[in-house]
């Protein structure tokens, strides 16, 4: 049912990696369609160069395609639609967020990432006012050092808490296994432990992220049902 988009106007924040991690986890239990709206097409290349994954279909958005049409079409075919956007502040990102049921805003916690996450969240708030519905969203810290909590990260967390911005408890840890999904064009489940270290930890991390997304979507669905019942 839900369309989940990954939006962060700055490149290199881990959008495609976290989108693919989530898509692969959800595809273990339902039909998932990923719309790769990044002209660099990292996920479309991932599937064309590799074997992809069961239940997981990838479509590459053309330059002139309407993201609204693509999302509507995907929603008819798949249970979950995931949209990976380009790391720029463009109109396609704006269209995508207005058509999403949930927006994930990846951030490495750096000042630059935070600035751009704030830009995206401010636009989400503007869109909410315009379209008259909530666009649930949360910041996902990505490429986090497993051992050290940096001062920058602590500041980023504090800022988000001060502004009441939802943040995933799960952080995507900087792991070789996540990079290896793109190097070997496969999922975490099909990586070779002889070639890549830390696969089990990466799988646990991926599962925790998917678990949190599902929990949020379930509570949103319940809230919507409640609202309909009350109306």
């Amino acid at each position: 049912m839900p369309t989940i988009s990954f939006i962060q106007p700055k490149g290199g924040a881990g959008k495609s990696t976290s989108a693919l991690i989530l898509a692969a986890e959800l595809a273990k239990g339902a039909q998932v369609m990923v719309i790769d709206a990044d002209p660099n097409a990292p996920i479309a290349k991932w599937t064309s160069r590799g074997k992809g994954a069961g239940n997981l279909e990838i479509i590459q958005a053309g330059k002139d395609d309407s993201i609204f049409d693509l999302i509507e079409d995907a929603e008819r075919k798949a249970v979950f639609v995931i949209v990976d956007t380009e790391g720029v502040a463009d109109l396609r990102a704006a269209h995508t967020m207005s058509a999403s049921d949930f927006v994930v805003v990846p951030s490495q916690g750096s000042a630059l990432d935070q600035d751009n996450a704030a830009r995206a969240i401010k636009l989400i708030k503007d869109q909410e006012r315009h379209i008259g519905r909530k666009i649930p969203h949360a910041v996902l810290f990505t490429r986090v050092n497993a051992a050290i909590r940096s001062r920058g990260m602590a500041t980023a967390e504090k800022q988000l808490a001060e502004h009441g911005i939802d943040v995933f408890d799960t952080r995507i840890i900087e792991r070789e296994a996540f990079k290896a999904m793109f190097s070997f064009n496969t999922t975490l489940d099909h990586l070779n432990p002889a070639e890549v270290g830390g696969i089990d930890k990466a799988k646990t991390n991926a599962r925790a992220f998917a678990r949190e997304v599902i929990t949020r979507l379930k509570s949103l669905g319940q809230a919507q049902k409640q609202a309909v019942g009350e109306a």
């Binding site: 106007p9 636009l123 869109q127």
Partner: peptide, 11 residues
């Protein structure tokens, strides 16, 4: 949507 986005520097 575009008008709002442009006001936020998304173009």
């Amino acid at each position: 949507v575009e008008k709002i986005a442009q006001a936020r520097g998304f173009d």
